[in-house]
Nucleic acid binder design. Structure first.
Lengths: 206, 206
DNA sequence: GTAGGTCTTGACCATACGGTCAGGAAAAGA
DNA sequence: TCTTTTCCTGACCGTATGGTCAAGACCTAC
């Protein structure tokens, strides 16, 4: 259920194959969900046989958990970077920008995460109730301070953060729908960037 | 793959059992995804045996498709109701309100839909590229008109609609995360209602 | 009541899937 | 080179799952 905590030494082959497996698993899990994915599919996408995959990871569960574990930090970093000492509107717009960039550059990771939460986060509950919640509370306090100082408009800070998650992740998770509705000749992420900048500038103007 | 178009006569038992199956299937599919759900689970939740379930529906696929088919209209109705003749801000806020009510009252339907889009909408592509796209274009034209008449601020209309989808559906699809971060003693949907009203009022003020 | 249709089920089937294992191929070390 | 360790695979196993079927229970109309 858990990878060895000790960073056991890894040969070049180990490193290469473990990476190939995780890359392939990301592709398959994010587009098929945990139960929808098969070890066969993952192994093939990684250019290995199924037993060989199971030589590097003891079970399907562990592959999935490893992927999720590596994800959260990347996902939270943009929020961590929001600096209480900076200019409020710039800091928030910067956060929106960085989060949208993640959606554009790592849509599979976003969908993997979405899949997990949709199913009730059976494998991430602890992390969400711990690390994630703590970070949100910390940053909500920063936002509240800015509001009290009259530097941005007053809105419920936690829901402000939710709105940023919802709006940015939508473009990764619902990519198919977004592109279908927009039709050809659009750059969803560029347009989203412009739209979201306007939206938050207007919302936050004191 | 498709239900009989003819509304064939149904006995009371047929009606009751088909309904029980669809209700149970909604519960299971929305929380486990298509492949994660088993006929056994659905049958049990419906109070039937597996072969009996298969007496009413020829396959798992058909149960799922039937569910999806019945969904889209409910999902699109709030947008359809947005009236070009009404007051712009009121109409848009009314749409947001109705969509948020759907998220609150039919979260399972929202998650079923989200699951489907996440996997690339293999069973809904046609409908999204047809009906959904057409409706969005129609309403985007209404919004654009309102902008040209100076009755609401100028923003990209289609992305405005996307933002409403993203923000309202987030509270259904990511319910688990929202509640975990908010902690006890919160009413996510009530708070979301207040937040979204403020957000769109400020965004749209001419 | 009873004949004819509707509904229900236990037993069964084929396949897919996660996972194991014994042994061979390939590297790495001596 | 020879030995040891790491890597890889074909064949296999047990279980879960979607789906079938023959036969019986239950309704309902006459």
């Amino acid at each position: 259920m858990q990878d060895t905590p000790m960073p056991l030494p890894r040969s070049r082959i180990q490193t290469r194959n473990r990476e190939a497996i995780l890359e392939a698993a990301l592709e398959v899990f994010s587009s098929q969900g945990f139960r929808g994915a098969t070890l066969e599919q993952i192994a093939e996408a990684a250019g290995l046989s199924k037993p060989n995959l199971l030589y590097y990871f003891p079970s399907k569960e562990v592959v999935h958990s490893t992927l999720l574990a590596g994800l959260l930090d990347t996902w939270l970093d943009p929020l961590r970077e929001m600096d209480a000492a900076g200019d409020p509107v710039e800091e928030i717009l910067g956060y929106v920008r960085r989060k949208l960039d993640l959606s554009r550059d790592f849509p599979r990771e976003s969908r993997l995460f979405a899949n997990e939460i949709l199913q009730g986060a059976p494998r991430m509950r602890a992390v969400i109730e711990g690390e994630l919640k703590a970070l949100v509370e910390e940053k909500a306090a920063v936002l509240r301070r800015w509001m009290e100082d009259g530097r941005i408009a007053r809105v419920e800070p936690v829901h402000l953060i939710f709105s940023i998650w919802a709006l940015t992740q939508h473009y990764a998770d619902f990519d198919m729908q977004v592109r279908a509705v927009l039709g050809e000749g659009h750059d969803p992420f560029a347009e989203a960037g412009a739209f979201l900048t306007t939206l938050y500038a207007r919302l936050l103007r004191p």
